[in-house]
Amino acid sequence: MKTDSAFLELEDSPRVAVWFDGAELELPEGANLAAALLAAGVGVFRHTPVSSEPRGPFCMMGACFDCLVEIDGIVRQACMTEVVEGLRVSRPHGTGGEHEAE
């Protein structure tokens, strides 16, 4: 997984298991979720509601909403979320304009 990533992690730190769209990933505990997913080789976080175009993190500061993912039925910004053990993350379905997933 790591070798496919467009990003390099400068340090290694203790990892926990996180699920992304059904695949198990080992991500650094307490890390920024968007950064950790990018480093694990995840490039596409969601598809836009308008034309299903792929999107990934753009601003990393909570302003652009392009890093939206779904966690426990709630659509959240991955760049504003911390990695915790057992997190179940998926690509949001059909939302983008709304915050709450149906």
């Binding site: 990533s5 467009a6 990003f7 390099l8 992690e9 400068l10 340090e11 890390a31 920024n32 950064a35 950790a36 990018l38 480093a39």
Partner: peptide
Amino acid sequence: QSGVIARR
């Protein structure tokens, strides 16, 4: 924040 850097 993350020590993550783009390779290319």
